[in-house]
């Protein structure tokens, strides 16, 4: 499974959800499929996308939030999984695309390539629902079940270490930030 295929498969479900992504390939691929005002791309601050998702989910409990995270980013903020679990926002689905590498900076392997199990770590941190997906069917089913469950869920999707040819897009960071804020505070 590639990450862009996985994103494309669930893209129609994202229309009314509040979406936060990490930097690099995930942001570029989602923008390539089609940017929407309800998508925010945290183009730096590795590790903090899940914390931003928590802040939004706590501030707006009536909105469903989805965070698209990565193995390298989660490994930089493992403590954040315990904070997510502690406050258990039932309106947050945390998707981790695990390609076992830091793809955008040379493809060096992360610790998930030598056995660190992020779904296991999330479960042990206290995240009430976790899932592992290695195929598109697994992934789309896990995503739909997470939305239907109305509970904090971490889905670790094992994906190929492939990405777009370039990471810089024509959407400026601040344009994205103010558009997203306007979207969130107008409804």
């Amino acid at each position: 499974m590639t990450r862009v295929e996985a994103l494309r498969a669930i893209y129609p479900r994202l229309e009314d959800l509040v979406v936060v992504t990490i930097m690099g390939a995930v942001a570029a691929e989602l923008q390539g499929i089609g940017h929407r005002p309800n998508f925010f791309y945290l183009q730096h601050a590795m590790g903090l996308a899940s914390s931003m998702g928590l802040g939004i989910a706590l501030a707006r409990p009536e909105r469903q939030v989805v965070v698209f995270d990565g193995d390298g980013s989660v490994l930089m903020n493992l403590g954040g999984l315990t904070t997510l679990a502690r406050y258990r926002p039932r309106n947050l689905v945390h998707v981790v695309f695990d390609n076992e590498s830091l793809l955008s900076v040379g493809g060096f392997p992360t610790a998930t390539s030598t056995g660190s199990d992020l779904a296991g770590i999330a479960a042990a941190a206290g995240v009430p629902r976790t899932a592992r997906a290695t195929t598109m069917d697994d992934f789309t089913r896990a995503f739909d079940e997470a939305l239907a469950a109305h509970d904090l869920t971490t889905i670790v999707a094992k994906v190929d270490a492939v990405g777009p040819s370039k990471f810089v897009t024509d959407l400026s960071l601040l344009e994205n930030r103010f558009e997203f804020q306007r979207y969130l505070t107008r409804r």
Binding site: V20, F40, A45, G47, L48, A49, S50, S51, M52, G53, L54, G55, I56, A57, L58, A59, R60, R63, N77, G79, G80, T82, T83, R177, F180, Q181, L184, T185
Partner: peptide, 17 residues
């Protein structure tokens, strides 16, 4: 768990009003 998380949480809360 660590203070840097608070930056992300405050950022999310701010954008959400």
């Amino acid at each position: 768990a660590k203070e840097e998380e608070g930056v992300g949480i405050s950022a999310g809360a701010h954008l959400a009003g």
